[in-house]
Computed example of a mutant assay.
Amino acid sequence: MSAMPDAARIRIWDRWVRFTHWVIAAIVIWDLFGPTDPLHRKLGYAAAALVVLRIVWGFIGTRYARFSAWWPTCSYLRAYGRSLASGKPLRHLSHNPFGGVMALVLWALVLALAFSGWLMRLDAFWGEDWPQAIHTALAIALEVCVCIHIAAAIAMSVWTRENLIAAMVTGYKRRHPRHAGNTTERDRCDR
């Protein structure tokens, strides 16, 4: 049961977005820290398939799941960077521009890991060290990005007093009054 009445909140993340986010997160944790066995490979391919489906959902999905709601253009990145520097971060209902960049980087790393893992299994590269080296480097990059992602979600939740982690669990963020300021035009909730 939500502590906020329905009038005070807005659904941002649909079930598919939340499902793919948390399942991919669980797979990544398992594959980064669990055994390297046949399950590791199968889960890696499953994570890549979920990323591909999430990308498709970025074109055909619900309003805030679509790339049009959060694609991190240069102008949005600059404006958001300026708002952070001023100490008054712009509010975004979907991903903020920096969060959008991180989502794209994380997805690219999951896809690259699946591809490099597949390359390691090919007979053509049997005995070659470079596929393993690439796979390991990508895994380390993913670990670093996951840590940054988690730290940023916590830090922004504290700074903006909007629990971003809870929003990815429940699907809801708080609704602001019509002229709450600091909400971007692109994804304002009071249109």
Rank of each mutant, 00 (worst) to 15 (best):
M1H: 08
M4L: 07
A7S: 13
A8P: 01
I12M: 08
I12L: 06
I12K: 04
I12P: 00
R15S: 04
V17Y: 00
V17A: 02
R18H: 05
F19K: 03
T20S: 15
H21C: 14
W22D: 01
I27D: 02
V28M: 08
I29A: 12
D31P: 03
L32Q: 03
L32F: 01
F33S: 01
T36V: 09
D37M: 09
L39M: 14
K42Q: 14
Y45W: 15
L50M: 15
L50I: 09
L53N: 02
R54Y: 07
W57V: 10
W57I: 10
R63G: 08
R66H: 01
F67C: 11
A69Q: 06
W70F: 12
W71E: 12
T73H: 12
S75L: 11
L77F: 07
R78F: 10
R78G: 02
G81L: 10
R82D: 15
R82C: 10
S86F: 10
G87Y: 09
G87F: 11
L90Y: 00
R91G: 04
H92W: 12
S94K: 13
P97S: 04
F98K: 00
F98W: 08
F98S: 00
V101I: 15
A103P: 14
A103Y: 12
W107H: 14
W107G: 11
V110W: 09
L119N: 03
L119P: 04
R121H: 00
D123K: 11
A124M: 14
F125W: 12
W126A: 13
W130T: 10
P131K: 06
Q132M: 09
H135S: 03
T136H: 05
A137L: 05
A141C: 11
A141E: 08
E143F: 12
E143C: 13
H149R: 13
A152D: 02
A152Y: 00
M156N: 10
M156H: 08
M156F: 11
V158E: 03
E162D: 03
N163R: 04
A166W: 15
V169I: 15
T170Q: 03
G171N: 06
Y172W: 12
T183E: 04
T183A: 01
R186L: 10
D187P: 06
D187Q: 07
R188F: 01
D190F: 06
R191C: 09
